[in-house]
């Protein structure tokens, strides 16, 4: 069976590009704080969502709507409306993280398929089966803290489909369990759908290079002619105990393309590509490559080598937690 590739779309144009490039499934969100990529100029209006679903369905692709921030106390109606509007738009599933919202969706929109967002950080079979029992969750997006053998062990103990990240930005912390960004900037993934937001980034020329600051803290410094990576907090440069470096993670991105055969063997249903903030040409290129890779996998052929290297952030990639030594 061909593994499903789940592709990012930050705009209607990216959605169409992903579908045309061979995406089985596209995920996207509404243009507000209900999803974890709440960036300026990104995401879908209600009309665009309806049109996007129509386009995808006409081409045999599915659309998942991410409503995966944690609803604000006193303002839950915004999130509930997003669930209702996803159903109206004809979405194939919603991707949720908050137990209260899952409970609401299960009660009020029982026919709308529910996926568990990576933001819920469900990292073992007990909790995954619990979400299935409590809220009828059909698929879980696994947090990026698990090795391939651990993923296989989870699949052996659950009927819930698993989806794993294979390409793009990489959280080093358990997703949905991280307040680093709100500590430094006041804006958090859980509450605002942003991490290390551009509004709080500042670049400063120094005598011999460029400092990158986030929320007033200098967390990256490069020489005059070096490329300056975006100052994402957990990939910043810090000093502890007399040692300076990327103490949490290097400025790398995830590329698990070569692990596709192992992930298939581990029982993974779907492969997720990060990057709703990316351009449609980037999305199209990544999707084409991954579609070729999963088709090759299904046909019992080797995965083509190194096609995506030039698209990776800072040119350096990692297979992250999928290899146990990453820990």
């Amino acid at each position: 069976m061909v593994m499903e590739i789940v592709c990012p779309a930050g705009t209607p144009a990216a959605l169409r590009a992903a579908v045309k490039a061979g995406a089985h499934t596209v995920y996207c969100g509404f243009a507000d704080e209900t999803n974890a990529r709440n960036f300026p100029g990104l995401n879908f209006s209600r009309e665009e969502m309806q049109e996007g679903v129509r386009f995808a369905h006409a081409h045999g692709a599915k659309v998942l709507v991410a409503i995966n921030t944690y609803p604000r106390a006193g303002a839950e109606e915004i999130w509930r409306q997003a669930v209702a509007d996803s159903e109206t738009a004809g979405a194939d599933a919603v991707i949720l993280a908050d137990p209260g919202l899952l409970d609401y969706a299960a009660r009020n929109h029982p026919d709308l398929r529910r996926h568990l967002s990576v933001q819920a950080a469900a990292a073992n079979a007990d909790i995954i089966n619990f979400y299935a029992r409590a809220f009828g969750v059909k698929r879980v997006v696994l947090p990026r803290v698990l090795s391939v053998p651990e993923i296989a062990a989870i699949n052996a103990e659950t009927d819930v489909e698993t989806e794993v990240f294979v390409f793009g930005g990489l959280c080093v912390m358990a997703e949905g369990r991280c307040s680093l960004s709100s500590y430094a900037t006041g804006k958090s993934p859980n509450m605002n759908g942003v991490c290390s937001p551009a509004s709080h980034v500042e670049y400063r020329e120094t005598g011999d290079g460029l400092d990158a600051r986030l929320g007033g803290y200098t967390i990256h410094r490069v020489g005059r002619d070096e490329p300056a990576p975006y100052p994402t907090l957990c990939k910043g440069c810090f000093t502890a105990g007399g040692k300076t470096g990327h103490l949490f993670e290097d400025p790398v991105s995830l590329n698990a393309e070569q692990l596709i055969p192992q992930l298939a063997k581990a029982g993974v249903t779907a492969l997720k590509i990060e990057g709703r903030q990316r351009s449609r040409s980037y999305v199209a290129q990544v999707v084409r490559n991954f579609r070729a890779a999963v088709d090759a996998q299904a046909a019992g052929q080797p995965i083509p080598q190194g096609m995506l290297a030039s698209l990776s952030e800072g040119q350096a990639t990692t297979t992250g937690a999928y290899k146990k030594t990453w820990r």
Binding site: V145, R177, C178, A240, F248, R327
Partner: peptide
């Protein structure tokens, strides 16, 4: 001190050039 994040990776071990195991 406020707990801000939890990870699969051990940063103390990483700082000493070791893995979590």
């Amino acid at each position: 001190r406020v707990p801000l994040a939890i990870s699969g990776r051990c940063y103390h071990a990483r700082r000493h050039g070791r893995t979590k195991d």
